[in-house]
Design a protein around this nucleic acid. Structure first.
Lengths: 232, 232
DNA sequence: AATTGTGAATTCCTTCACAGCC
DNA sequence: GGCTGTGAAGGAATTCACAATT
């Protein structure tokens, strides 16, 4: 085990390996080599071995990795062997979908509080039975229910304030769906899932048939032209 | 003539710059420097200038960038000055949320078809008025309606088949929410949004206080992340 | 004076290749 | 023989730093 700083790219891949191991375990496979796993994800086998080696020597030379053993190690590394207590702030379409979507969370994430500012929603319950509370109660309830992860699904303009409030209540991990760049305090981690960026990336790909490998030259038709007010 | 492959990180950042420029334009700001933009996103100003320089010389030395001019250029680069025709396959919680969520799409993405396998849903309409059709019609309708982007929000086990079907109908850009690694044909681009990975990343952070409080926020989108590749 | 555009330096990540072990 | 763990090499992305430009 090393004390080196571990890249988030590595921990993201651990999530992928974990999912693979879950499947293997479910189908009764007992060992897996880095090479075999790499093939499933078009990854390099050395990368998998290196990712794992940051956390220990989990493999057996000449054999590979014991599926269940490695699975347990990764669960522990990712903090998934204890339950995270999650709140969702903003029960619009997306927030509601996440509140009702059990598939994602498996057994490590428990949605224990829901907040919205709309009086029409307050007091109603989602399918799991959790009641939507007024966002006025945000700070106290977050503390009281010992929430450690907050999902922000409010409009962009409200997101920064929600972040400030939950930070004040001691939350250090936030999953943000608002399409805005947030400014967390030191020690607070924000992951933003930005669907606009994903869609626009696809749009770029379609607009640029050579974008996936061949070179492009845009300069001829995109050069700055002070005469046109931008329309190019 | 400068020919160079453009990284997806660069185009993702263009999306962010675009959003910034939209706000600036709305508030009547006429010029912006790379330095000023960089401060908003904790990015390096040289990176912004380099990103833009791939596509042309849009700036004016001593002045900065003309907001509306640059905005128009980026819209064109990202293919957002023409409308993309989008279909959503799988109208569960998430698919329904996306179908009803107009906020994301602005004016460049038009949701023109919805598909589900559940007979109870077929024939019903979402708020925008678009009717949910049987997934049996997927291939013909995709062709007929000239869909160019497909959003996959079906269960993980069904996703690969949906990808195969829409690929057969000529779709080359897919936004996938199913938590599974898909295998697109060459020339087809898949972007996967994996909420499990995001949540587990937060869990790791909480479980490892030594994973110092570095703020990542947009890191997945804006910094090096070979995982989020897609096309073949 | 201010700011862009860009080669050079740096940092970070991946892949190679092989020693070491089962 | 097969496979892991890892130092070294290679590659990619970011940041520096400054000449060029308005």
């Amino acid at each position: 085990m090393k004390t080196e700083k571990i890249s988030e790219l590595t921990t993201n891949r651990l999530s992928v390996y974990l999912r693979c191991l879950n499947e293997l375990a479910a189908t009764g496979v007992e060992t897996i080599s880095s090479q075999a796993m790499a093939e499933q994800f078009n990854l390099n086998s050395a990368q998998i071995r290196k990712d794992l080696a940051y956390f220990g020597e989990f493999g057996v030379r000449g054999v590979g990795y014991y599926v269940e053993n490695l699975r347990q190690h990764i669960l522990k590394i990712l903090g998934l062997s204890t339950v995270n207590r999650v709140a969702i702030v903003g029960l619009g379409n997306l927030g509601m979908a996440l509140a009702n979507y059990h598939g994602f969370y498996q057994h490590s994430f428990d949605i224990v509080a829901l907040f919205d500012a709309d009086p029409a929603k307050i007091g109603t319950r989602v399918r799991s039975g959790v009641e939507i509370q007024s966002a006025d109660n945000l700070k106290e309830v977050i503390k009281q229910k010992e929430i450690n992860i907050v999902v922000i699904t409010v409009p962009a303009t409200a997101a920064e304030q929600v972040l400030a409030d939950v930070t004040e209540s001691g939350v250090r991990a936030v999953l943000n769906f608002a399409p805005v760049h947030l400014h967390p305090k030191p020690g607070v981690k924000v992951k933003t899932v930005d669907l606009s960026i994903s869609l626009e990336s696809l749009s770029y790909f379609l607009a640029n048939p050579s974008a996936d490998g061949v070179n492009v030259d845009y300069r001829d038709f995109l050069r700055y032209d002070p005469e046109s007010n931008g329309a190019g």
